[in-house]
Design a protein around this nucleic acid. Structure first.
Lengths: 220, 220
DNA sequence: AAAATAATTCAATTTTGATTTACTTGAGGG
DNA sequence: CCCTCAAGTAAATCAAAATTGAATTATTTT
Protein backbone atom coordinates (compact mmCIF):
# COMPACT_ATOMS: atom_id res chain seq x y z
CA UNK A 1 0.00 0.00 0.00
CA UNK A 2 0.97 3.61 -0.33
CA UNK A 3 2.30 5.80 2.41
CA UNK A 4 -0.97 7.45 3.32
CA UNK A 5 -3.52 5.12 1.92
CA UNK A 6 -6.53 7.14 3.00
CA UNK A 7 -8.37 9.51 0.70
CA UNK A 8 -6.05 12.34 1.70
CA UNK A 9 -3.08 10.49 0.25
CA UNK A 10 -1.90 13.49 -1.68
CA UNK A 11 -0.04 15.47 0.93
CA UNK A 12 3.44 14.70 -0.26
CA UNK A 13 5.55 16.80 2.06
CA UNK A 14 8.27 18.43 0.09
CA UNK A 15 11.77 17.18 0.46
CA UNK A 16 14.01 17.56 -2.55
CA UNK A 17 16.88 15.53 -1.13
CA UNK A 18 14.69 12.60 -0.31
CA UNK A 19 12.96 12.75 -3.69
CA UNK A 20 16.24 12.96 -5.50
CA UNK A 21 17.54 10.02 -3.51
CA UNK A 22 14.46 7.96 -4.18
CA UNK A 23 14.71 8.64 -7.89
CA UNK A 24 18.34 7.55 -7.91
CA UNK A 25 17.54 4.38 -6.00
CA UNK A 26 14.69 3.52 -8.32
CA UNK A 27 16.81 4.31 -11.34
CA UNK A 28 19.53 2.05 -10.07
CA UNK A 29 17.28 -0.96 -9.89
CA UNK A 30 15.42 -0.20 -13.09
CA UNK A 31 18.64 0.18 -15.07
CA UNK A 32 20.05 -2.88 -13.37
CA UNK A 33 17.02 -4.95 -14.21
CA UNK A 34 16.54 -3.80 -17.79
CA UNK A 35 19.66 -2.08 -19.04
CA UNK A 36 19.73 1.40 -20.42
CA UNK A 37 17.49 0.87 -23.41
CA UNK A 38 15.13 -1.40 -21.55
CA UNK A 39 14.64 0.94 -18.63
CA UNK A 40 11.48 3.05 -18.56
CA UNK A 41 11.48 6.54 -17.19
CA UNK A 42 7.88 6.26 -16.10
CA UNK A 43 8.59 3.05 -14.27
CA UNK A 44 11.42 4.70 -12.41
CA UNK A 45 9.09 7.51 -11.40
CA UNK A 46 6.51 5.02 -10.26
CA UNK A 47 8.99 3.10 -8.15
CA UNK A 48 10.37 6.30 -6.73
CA UNK A 49 6.84 7.27 -5.81
CA UNK A 50 6.98 10.50 -7.72
CA UNK A 51 5.92 12.07 -10.96
CA UNK A 52 7.98 11.45 -14.07
CA UNK A 53 8.37 15.15 -14.57
CA UNK A 54 10.54 15.31 -11.48
CA UNK A 55 13.13 13.13 -13.07
CA UNK A 56 13.64 15.82 -15.64
CA UNK A 57 13.54 18.46 -12.97
CA UNK A 58 16.39 16.86 -11.05
CA UNK A 59 18.37 14.98 -13.64
CA UNK A 60 17.65 16.72 -16.96
CA UNK A 61 17.17 13.53 -18.94
CA UNK A 62 17.47 9.77 -19.02
CA UNK A 63 21.11 9.85 -20.00
CA UNK A 64 22.22 11.94 -17.06
CA UNK A 65 20.14 9.91 -14.70
CA UNK A 66 21.90 6.83 -15.95
CA UNK A 67 25.26 8.51 -15.56
CA UNK A 68 24.41 9.33 -11.96
CA UNK A 69 23.51 5.71 -11.28
CA UNK A 70 26.76 4.57 -12.85
CA UNK A 71 28.79 6.93 -10.72
CA UNK A 72 27.05 5.73 -7.61
CA UNK A 73 27.75 2.04 -8.02
CA UNK A 74 31.41 2.69 -8.53
CA UNK A 75 31.73 4.89 -5.51
CA UNK A 76 29.95 2.16 -3.52
CA UNK A 77 32.32 -0.61 -4.49
CA UNK A 78 35.49 1.41 -4.06
CA UNK A 79 34.32 2.61 -0.70
CA UNK A 80 33.85 -0.95 0.39
CA UNK A 81 37.26 -1.99 -0.89
CA UNK A 82 38.90 0.89 0.90
CA UNK A 83 37.73 -0.57 4.18
CA UNK A 84 39.63 -3.77 3.56
CA UNK A 85 42.95 -2.65 4.92
CA UNK A 86 44.99 -5.05 2.94
CA UNK A 87 48.21 -3.49 4.19
CA UNK A 88 47.70 -4.75 7.69
CA UNK A 89 47.31 -8.39 6.73
CA UNK A 90 49.90 -11.00 5.84
CA UNK A 91 50.03 -11.36 2.05
CA UNK A 92 48.28 -14.69 1.79
CA UNK A 93 45.43 -13.53 3.96
CA UNK A 94 45.20 -10.24 2.13
CA UNK A 95 44.64 -11.98 -1.18
CA UNK A 96 42.15 -14.37 0.33
CA UNK A 97 40.25 -11.57 1.91
CA UNK A 98 40.13 -9.53 -1.26
CA UNK A 99 38.86 -12.54 -3.13
CA UNK A 100 36.18 -13.42 -0.64
CA UNK A 101 35.01 -9.86 -0.27
CA UNK A 102 34.80 -9.38 -4.00
CA UNK A 103 32.93 -12.62 -4.45
CA UNK A 104 30.45 -11.76 -1.74
CA UNK A 105 30.04 -8.21 -2.92
CA UNK A 106 28.93 -9.27 -6.38
CA UNK A 107 26.54 -11.76 -4.93
CA UNK A 108 24.92 -9.22 -2.66
CA UNK A 109 25.05 -6.17 -4.90
CA UNK A 110 23.68 -7.43 -8.14
CA UNK A 111 23.24 -3.87 -9.36
CA UNK A 112 26.95 -3.43 -9.86
CA UNK A 113 27.33 -6.24 -12.35
CA UNK A 114 24.05 -5.50 -14.07
CA UNK A 115 24.89 -1.90 -14.64
CA UNK A 116 28.45 -2.46 -15.75
CA UNK A 117 27.07 -5.04 -18.14
CA UNK A 118 24.73 -2.46 -19.55
CA UNK A 119 27.51 0.08 -19.77
CA UNK A 120 29.72 -2.32 -21.68
CA UNK A 121 26.88 -3.01 -24.04
CA UNK A 122 26.77 0.71 -24.69
CA UNK A 123 30.44 0.61 -25.55
CA UNK A 124 31.45 2.54 -22.45
CA UNK A 125 29.76 5.66 -23.75
CA UNK A 126 29.21 7.11 -20.30
CA UNK A 127 32.03 5.75 -18.21
CA UNK A 128 34.57 7.02 -20.69
CA UNK A 129 33.39 10.53 -19.83
CA UNK A 130 33.98 10.08 -16.11
CA UNK A 131 37.62 10.50 -15.21
CA UNK A 132 36.71 10.50 -11.53
CA UNK A 133 36.14 6.76 -11.66
CA UNK A 134 39.68 6.04 -12.67
CA UNK A 135 40.89 8.27 -9.88
CA UNK A 136 38.86 6.29 -7.39
CA UNK A 137 40.30 3.01 -8.59
CA UNK A 138 44.00 3.67 -8.71
CA UNK A 139 44.63 3.13 -4.97
CA UNK A 140 43.25 -0.38 -5.08
CA UNK A 141 45.71 -1.42 -7.73
CA UNK A 142 48.58 0.06 -5.77
CA UNK A 143 47.58 -1.90 -2.73
CA UNK A 144 47.45 -5.16 -4.63
CA UNK A 145 50.83 -4.46 -6.16
CA UNK A 146 52.17 -3.94 -2.68
CA UNK A 147 50.69 -7.14 -1.32
CA UNK A 148 52.21 -9.11 -4.17
CA UNK A 149 55.58 -7.56 -3.54
CA UNK A 150 55.43 -8.42 0.14
CA UNK A 151 54.43 -11.98 -0.60
CA UNK A 152 57.30 -12.39 -3.00
CA UNK A 153 59.73 -10.93 -0.49
CA UNK A 154 58.52 -13.37 2.12
CA UNK A 155 59.02 -16.23 -0.29
CA UNK A 156 55.41 -17.39 -0.27
CA UNK A 157 54.24 -15.98 -3.61
CA UNK A 158 55.21 -16.79 -7.13
CA UNK A 159 57.09 -14.14 -9.02
CA UNK A 160 55.90 -12.45 -12.17
CA UNK A 161 52.31 -11.93 -11.19
CA UNK A 162 50.78 -8.71 -12.44
CA UNK A 163 48.40 -6.92 -10.11
CA UNK A 164 45.90 -5.97 -12.78
CA UNK A 165 45.84 -9.46 -14.23
CA UNK A 166 45.24 -10.89 -10.81
CA UNK A 167 42.48 -8.48 -9.94
CA UNK A 168 40.72 -9.03 -13.24
CA UNK A 169 40.94 -12.76 -12.65
CA UNK A 170 39.41 -12.42 -9.21
CA UNK A 171 36.59 -10.37 -10.65
CA UNK A 172 36.16 -12.69 -13.61
CA UNK A 173 35.89 -15.81 -11.47
CA UNK A 174 33.54 -14.10 -9.06
CA UNK A 175 31.37 -12.42 -11.61
CA UNK A 176 30.93 -14.58 -14.65
CA UNK A 177 28.49 -17.07 -13.22
CA UNK A 178 26.36 -14.16 -12.09
CA UNK A 179 26.63 -12.20 -15.28
CA UNK A 180 25.84 -15.25 -17.30
CA UNK A 181 23.60 -17.14 -14.91
CA UNK A 182 20.72 -17.47 -17.33
CA UNK A 183 22.66 -18.70 -20.30
CA UNK A 184 24.76 -21.01 -18.16
CA UNK A 185 21.74 -22.48 -16.44
CA UNK A 186 20.00 -23.05 -19.73
CA UNK A 187 23.11 -24.42 -21.39
CA UNK A 188 24.14 -26.90 -18.76
CA UNK A 189 20.82 -27.66 -17.14
CA UNK A 190 21.88 -26.76 -13.63
CA UNK A 191 20.62 -24.04 -11.40
CA UNK A 192 23.57 -21.70 -11.25
CA UNK A 193 21.81 -19.38 -8.82
CA UNK A 194 21.09 -21.98 -6.16
CA UNK A 195 22.66 -21.33 -2.78
CA UNK A 196 24.57 -24.57 -2.59
CA UNK A 197 26.03 -24.21 -6.04
CA UNK A 198 27.18 -20.73 -5.18
CA UNK A 199 28.85 -21.96 -2.04
CA UNK A 200 30.74 -24.55 -4.03
CA UNK A 201 31.69 -21.89 -6.49
CA UNK A 202 33.04 -19.70 -3.73
CA UNK A 203 35.31 -22.44 -2.46
CA UNK A 204 36.49 -23.23 -5.97
CA UNK A 205 37.32 -19.60 -6.71
CA UNK A 206 39.20 -19.03 -3.50
CA UNK A 207 41.23 -22.15 -4.09
CA UNK A 208 42.03 -21.15 -7.64
CA UNK A 209 43.29 -17.77 -6.62
CA UNK A 210 45.35 -19.28 -3.88
CA UNK A 211 46.94 -21.73 -6.28
CA UNK A 212 47.60 -18.92 -8.69
CA UNK A 213 49.41 -16.82 -6.18
CA UNK A 214 51.24 -19.08 -3.79
CA UNK A 215 54.07 -21.40 -4.63
CA UNK A 216 53.30 -25.11 -4.94
CA UNK A 217 52.09 -26.43 -1.59
CA UNK A 218 54.73 -29.09 -1.11
CA UNK A 219 57.39 -26.42 -1.43
CA UNK A 220 59.12 -25.57 1.79
CA UNK B 1 3.88 7.18 -58.21
CA UNK B 2 6.20 4.93 -56.34
CA UNK B 3 7.93 3.60 -59.39
CA UNK B 4 11.56 4.36 -58.74
CA UNK B 5 12.49 3.60 -62.31
CA UNK B 6 14.35 6.87 -62.51
CA UNK B 7 18.12 6.95 -62.24
CA UNK B 8 19.72 3.68 -61.19
CA UNK B 9 16.83 1.27 -60.97
CA UNK B 10 17.96 -1.51 -58.65
CA UNK B 11 17.80 -4.80 -60.37
CA UNK B 12 17.89 -6.98 -57.32
CA UNK B 13 17.87 -10.48 -58.72
CA UNK B 14 15.63 -12.65 -56.60
CA UNK B 15 17.21 -15.16 -54.30
CA UNK B 16 15.32 -15.97 -51.14
CA UNK B 17 18.08 -18.05 -49.57
CA UNK B 18 20.68 -15.42 -50.03
CA UNK B 19 18.39 -12.70 -48.74
CA UNK B 20 17.49 -14.74 -45.70
CA UNK B 21 21.13 -15.41 -45.00
CA UNK B 22 22.05 -11.77 -45.37
CA UNK B 23 19.33 -10.78 -42.97
CA UNK B 24 20.55 -13.25 -40.38
CA UNK B 25 24.13 -12.06 -40.75
CA UNK B 26 23.13 -8.44 -40.41
CA UNK B 27 20.90 -9.26 -37.45
CA UNK B 28 23.77 -11.05 -35.75
CA UNK B 29 26.01 -8.03 -35.86
CA UNK B 30 23.31 -5.52 -35.07
CA UNK B 31 22.17 -7.48 -32.01
CA UNK B 32 25.76 -8.04 -31.00
CA UNK B 33 26.57 -4.38 -31.27
CA UNK B 34 23.47 -3.01 -29.61
CA UNK B 35 21.68 -5.72 -27.70
CA UNK B 36 18.09 -6.68 -28.26
CA UNK B 37 16.49 -3.41 -27.26
CA UNK B 38 19.16 -1.32 -28.87
CA UNK B 39 19.00 -3.10 -32.21
CA UNK B 40 17.03 -1.42 -34.99
CA UNK B 41 15.07 -3.41 -37.50
CA UNK B 42 15.57 -0.83 -40.19
CA UNK B 43 19.29 -0.84 -39.60
CA UNK B 44 19.39 -4.59 -40.00
CA UNK B 45 17.53 -4.27 -43.26
CA UNK B 46 19.92 -1.62 -44.44
CA UNK B 47 22.97 -3.70 -43.60
CA UNK B 48 21.41 -6.73 -45.22
CA UNK B 49 20.83 -4.64 -48.31
CA UNK B 50 17.14 -5.30 -48.35
CA UNK B 51 13.85 -3.74 -47.43
CA UNK B 52 12.69 -3.92 -43.84
CA UNK B 53 9.49 -5.56 -44.93
CA UNK B 54 11.44 -8.64 -45.92
CA UNK B 55 12.50 -9.21 -42.35
CA UNK B 56 8.86 -9.70 -41.50
CA UNK B 57 8.42 -11.76 -44.60
CA UNK B 58 11.10 -14.22 -43.55
CA UNK B 59 11.24 -14.01 -39.78
CA UNK B 60 7.81 -12.79 -38.67
CA UNK B 61 9.09 -10.27 -36.14
CA UNK B 62 12.06 -8.92 -34.24
CA UNK B 63 11.80 -11.51 -31.49
CA UNK B 64 12.01 -14.49 -33.80
CA UNK B 65 14.83 -12.92 -35.70
CA UNK B 66 16.71 -12.54 -32.45
CA UNK B 67 15.97 -16.12 -31.49
CA UNK B 68 17.38 -17.28 -34.81
CA UNK B 69 20.56 -15.32 -34.18
CA UNK B 70 20.88 -16.78 -30.71
CA UNK B 71 20.49 -20.32 -31.98
CA UNK B 72 23.14 -19.72 -34.59
CA UNK B 73 25.90 -18.54 -32.27
CA UNK B 74 25.46 -21.54 -30.03
CA UNK B 75 25.55 -24.02 -32.84
CA UNK B 76 28.72 -22.29 -34.04
CA UNK B 77 30.59 -22.61 -30.76
CA UNK B 78 29.57 -26.18 -30.04
CA UNK B 79 30.52 -27.19 -33.52
CA UNK B 80 33.96 -25.77 -32.99
CA UNK B 81 34.37 -27.49 -29.63
CA UNK B 82 33.33 -30.80 -31.08
CA UNK B 83 36.35 -30.67 -33.36
CA UNK B 84 38.72 -30.54 -30.41
CA UNK B 85 39.01 -34.27 -29.82
CA UNK B 86 39.99 -33.99 -26.20
CA UNK B 87 39.84 -37.76 -25.78
CA UNK B 88 42.88 -38.32 -27.91
CA UNK B 89 45.15 -36.01 -25.93
CA UNK B 90 47.00 -36.56 -22.67
CA UNK B 91 45.02 -34.88 -19.86
CA UNK B 92 47.32 -31.94 -19.32
CA UNK B 93 47.39 -31.11 -22.98
CA UNK B 94 43.66 -31.56 -23.30
CA UNK B 95 42.98 -28.96 -20.64
CA UNK B 96 45.50 -26.60 -22.13
CA UNK B 97 44.03 -26.98 -25.55
CA UNK B 98 40.50 -26.40 -24.35
CA UNK B 99 41.64 -23.29 -22.56
CA UNK B 100 43.53 -21.85 -25.46
CA UNK B 101 40.80 -22.62 -27.95
CA UNK B 102 38.16 -21.07 -25.75
CA UNK B 103 40.26 -17.99 -25.18
CA UNK B 104 40.92 -17.56 -28.87
CA UNK B 105 37.36 -18.25 -29.83
CA UNK B 106 36.02 -15.42 -27.70
CA UNK B 107 38.58 -13.08 -29.05
CA UNK B 108 37.75 -13.85 -32.65
CA UNK B 109 34.00 -14.30 -32.37
CA UNK B 110 32.93 -11.27 -30.48
CA UNK B 111 29.33 -11.90 -31.43
CA UNK B 112 29.06 -14.84 -29.06
CA UNK B 113 29.85 -12.88 -25.94
CA UNK B 114 27.89 -9.86 -27.04
CA UNK B 115 24.76 -11.81 -27.72
CA UNK B 116 24.91 -13.95 -24.61
CA UNK B 117 25.40 -10.73 -22.69
CA UNK B 118 22.27 -9.36 -24.23
CA UNK B 119 20.41 -12.58 -23.52
CA UNK B 120 21.41 -12.51 -19.88
CA UNK B 121 20.24 -8.94 -19.65
CA UNK B 122 16.89 -10.19 -20.90
CA UNK B 123 16.85 -12.73 -18.09
CA UNK B 124 17.27 -15.65 -20.45
CA UNK B 125 13.85 -15.08 -21.94
CA UNK B 126 14.70 -16.70 -25.24
CA UNK B 127 17.33 -19.26 -24.39
CA UNK B 128 15.09 -20.80 -21.75
CA UNK B 129 12.72 -21.72 -24.55
CA UNK B 130 15.35 -23.57 -26.51
CA UNK B 131 15.96 -27.02 -25.13
CA UNK B 132 18.08 -27.89 -28.14
CA UNK B 133 20.89 -25.76 -26.78
CA UNK B 134 21.24 -27.84 -23.66
CA UNK B 135 21.26 -30.96 -25.77
CA UNK B 136 24.13 -29.57 -27.82
CA UNK B 137 26.16 -28.79 -24.72
CA UNK B 138 25.97 -31.97 -22.69
CA UNK B 139 28.71 -33.85 -24.59
CA UNK B 140 31.28 -31.18 -23.83
CA UNK B 141 30.80 -31.56 -20.11
CA UNK B 142 31.10 -35.30 -20.35
CA UNK B 143 34.37 -34.98 -22.17
CA UNK B 144 35.81 -32.65 -19.57
CA UNK B 145 34.72 -34.98 -16.80
CA UNK B 146 36.53 -37.75 -18.57
CA UNK B 147 39.73 -35.77 -19.00
CA UNK B 148 39.74 -34.92 -15.30
CA UNK B 149 39.25 -38.53 -14.37
CA UNK B 150 42.14 -39.63 -16.58
CA UNK B 151 44.41 -36.96 -15.15
CA UNK B 152 43.60 -38.03 -11.63
CA UNK B 153 44.21 -41.67 -12.49
CA UNK B 154 47.58 -40.78 -13.94
CA UNK B 155 48.46 -38.89 -10.79
CA UNK B 156 49.00 -35.55 -12.47
CA UNK B 157 45.76 -33.80 -11.53
CA UNK B 158 44.39 -32.70 -8.20
CA UNK B 159 41.36 -34.52 -6.95
CA UNK B 160 38.00 -32.99 -6.26
CA UNK B 161 37.78 -30.77 -9.31
CA UNK B 162 34.32 -30.41 -10.76
CA UNK B 163 34.04 -30.30 -14.54
CA UNK B 164 31.40 -27.58 -14.63
CA UNK B 165 33.30 -25.39 -12.18
CA UNK B 166 36.41 -25.76 -14.25
CA UNK B 167 34.72 -24.99 -17.52
CA UNK B 168 33.00 -21.95 -16.10
CA UNK B 169 36.34 -20.76 -14.78
CA UNK B 170 37.96 -21.17 -18.16
CA UNK B 171 35.17 -19.22 -19.76
CA UNK B 172 35.20 -16.60 -17.01
CA UNK B 173 38.92 -15.96 -17.29
CA UNK B 174 38.76 -15.87 -21.06
CA UNK B 175 35.65 -13.78 -21.37
CA UNK B 176 35.51 -11.21 -18.65
CA UNK B 177 38.08 -8.81 -20.00
CA UNK B 178 36.23 -8.85 -23.29
CA UNK B 179 32.78 -8.54 -21.82
CA UNK B 180 33.93 -5.73 -19.61
CA UNK B 181 36.61 -4.20 -21.76
CA UNK B 182 35.13 -0.72 -21.71
CA UNK B 183 34.54 -0.44 -18.00
CA UNK B 184 37.89 -2.04 -17.21
CA UNK B 185 39.76 0.23 -19.56
CA UNK B 186 38.07 3.29 -18.11
CA UNK B 187 38.49 2.12 -14.55
CA UNK B 188 42.14 1.25 -14.65
CA UNK B 189 43.33 3.51 -17.40
CA UNK B 190 44.82 0.78 -19.53
CA UNK B 191 43.85 -0.34 -22.96
CA UNK B 192 42.40 -3.76 -22.31
CA UNK B 193 41.82 -4.40 -26.00
CA UNK B 194 45.39 -3.84 -27.11
CA UNK B 195 47.05 -6.80 -28.73
CA UNK B 196 49.96 -6.99 -26.34
CA UNK B 197 47.75 -6.84 -23.27
CA UNK B 198 45.63 -9.62 -24.66
CA UNK B 199 48.69 -11.76 -25.25
CA UNK B 200 49.77 -11.29 -21.66
CA UNK B 201 46.28 -12.13 -20.55
CA UNK B 202 46.32 -15.34 -22.55
CA UNK B 203 49.51 -16.51 -20.89
CA UNK B 204 48.18 -15.59 -17.47
CA UNK B 205 44.94 -17.49 -18.02
CA UNK B 206 46.61 -20.61 -19.32
CA UNK B 207 48.96 -20.61 -16.36
CA UNK B 208 46.14 -20.16 -13.90
CA UNK B 209 44.18 -23.05 -15.29
CA UNK B 210 47.25 -25.21 -15.26
CA UNK B 211 47.93 -24.38 -11.64
CA UNK B 212 44.32 -25.08 -10.80
CA UNK B 213 44.35 -28.51 -12.32
CA UNK B 214 47.78 -30.00 -11.86
CA UNK B 215 49.42 -30.86 -8.57
CA UNK B 216 52.03 -28.45 -7.22
CA UNK B 217 55.05 -28.43 -9.50
CA UNK B 218 57.62 -29.41 -6.91
CA UNK B 219 55.58 -32.50 -6.11
CA UNK B 220 57.08 -35.72 -7.38
C1' DA C 1 1.58 37.95 5.17
C1' DA C 2 2.78 38.82 0.49
C1' DA C 3 6.28 37.76 -2.81
C1' DA C 4 9.52 34.83 -4.58
C1' DT C 5 11.14 30.47 -5.41
C1' DA C 6 11.25 25.75 -5.69
C1' DA C 7 8.69 21.28 -5.77
C1' DT C 8 5.15 18.84 -7.76
C1' DT C 9 1.29 17.53 -10.73
C1' DC C 10 -1.40 16.68 -14.99
C1' DA C 11 -1.85 16.51 -19.43
C1' DA C 12 -0.09 17.21 -23.67
C1' DT C 13 3.53 16.86 -27.48
C1' DT C 14 7.08 14.92 -29.99
C1' DT C 15 10.00 11.20 -31.28
C1' DT C 16 11.07 6.97 -32.40
C1' DG C 17 10.73 2.50 -33.99
C1' DA C 18 8.14 -1.85 -34.90
C1' DT C 19 4.79 -3.49 -37.74
C1' DT C 20 1.39 -3.33 -41.64
C1' DT C 21 -1.04 -2.00 -45.86
C1' DA C 22 -1.00 -1.59 -50.49
C1' DC C 23 1.36 -1.91 -54.25
C1' DT C 24 5.01 -3.53 -58.07
C1' DT C 25 7.91 -6.80 -60.28
C1' DG C 26 10.36 -10.97 -61.50
C1' DA C 27 10.39 -15.96 -62.55
C1' DG C 28 8.64 -20.30 -63.61
C1' DG C 29 4.88 -23.56 -65.02
C1' DG C 30 1.17 -24.44 -68.04
C1' DC D 1 2.66 -15.76 -73.81
C1' DC D 2 0.17 -15.29 -69.78
C1' DC D 3 -1.02 -16.23 -65.14
C1' DT D 4 0.11 -16.85 -60.56
C1' DC D 5 2.74 -16.51 -56.62
C1' DA D 6 6.57 -15.34 -54.05
C1' DA D 7 10.03 -11.63 -53.73
C1' DG D 8 10.53 -7.11 -53.21
C1' DT D 9 9.50 -1.85 -52.46
C1' DA D 10 7.54 2.47 -50.65
C1' DA D 11 5.13 4.67 -47.47
C1' DA D 12 1.67 4.77 -43.80
C1' DT D 13 0.16 3.40 -39.31
C1' DC D 14 0.21 2.67 -34.58
C1' DA D 15 1.88 2.35 -30.04
C1' DA D 16 5.22 3.08 -26.76
C1' DA D 17 8.22 6.20 -24.53
C1' DA D 18 10.81 10.27 -23.81
C1' DT D 19 10.30 14.90 -23.08
C1' DT D 20 7.96 19.39 -22.23
C1' DG D 21 4.32 23.21 -21.18
C1' DA D 22 1.82 25.25 -18.09
C1' DA D 23 -0.65 25.33 -13.96
C1' DT D 24 -0.64 24.29 -8.87
C1' DT D 25 0.95 24.09 -4.33
C1' DA D 26 4.31 24.09 -0.57
C1' DT D 27 8.29 26.35 1.61
C1' DT D 28 11.26 30.16 2.33
C1' DT D 29 12.36 34.92 2.34
C1' DT D 30 11.71 39.54 3.17
Amino acid sequence: MKNTSASTARVRTRDPERTKGQILEAALSEFAANGYDGARVHQIAKNAGCNARLIYHYFDNKERLYAAALRKIYSDIREREAKLNLDSLPPEQAVMRLTETTFDFFENNTAFLSITRSENLLGGRFISQMPEIQKMSAPLLDKITDVLKRGRAEGVFRSGIDALQLYISIVALSAHHINASHTLSATFGRDISSVTWRQERRAHVVEMIQNAVTLGESRD
